[in-house]
Amino acid sequence: MTSFAKEFTKGIWKENPVLVLALGMCPTLATSSNASNALAMGLATTFVLVCSNLVISLIRGIVPDKIRIPCYIVVISTFVTVTDLFMKAYAPPAIYKALGIFLPLITVNCIVLGRAEAFASKNGLFLSLLDGAGMGFGFTLALTVVGVIREFLSAGTIFNLHMQCWESGFAVLGQAPGGFIVLGFVLAGMNCLNIRKARKNGARYEPPPEFDCHNCALCDFGRTDEK
């Protein structure tokens, strides 16, 4: 696999922002109550992510280190405002209303600022574009999967199409606590797949070392034992 493809696909599985990095939980729980909202939220975030990654990669040479965070936030919030206005004008009214406050809140979504700081500020234009698109796609995919499961179990519909398995399901799954439960099961399923894949190759599944608590720069907890 070439490194270009790797930059794109890492956001979808290996470093999926929601399911592996556990970033952006708030919009995930709030907007994944049905599949259409989840998809719309994912696409809006992807747009912001790609644009902000591009611009931040472009200006990375002239932004002084000391004020880089405010600069990134200004860039991100600009694109969020642009997205908000365009969705207000052209997206289906029901979806715009359902996303509500979570659309402007993309500004403070950890994924967007996280990618700006960890990737776009250190890499070139094309790589940053791929990284943003991959991360956004992974976010959209995770959100939509959770959304489809929650919508099907809570209302018996998928993308508002009634599946005729049951009339009305478990209402709790349509609300925030149900979001946690479904997300937990999706995480478990993903870990299960990873472990099974590793076992087939005769290895033991380890999460990528950079996400291990031992490697977190913020704390030395557990750094001395085990190693």
Binding site: I62, V63, P64, V74, T78
Partner: peptide, 12 residues
């Protein structure tokens, strides 16, 4: 620093 921030905000 002020000039850089001003430029970015103006463009935004």
């Amino acid at each position: 620093l002020s000039f850089a921030l001003f430029l970015i905000c103006a463009a935004a």
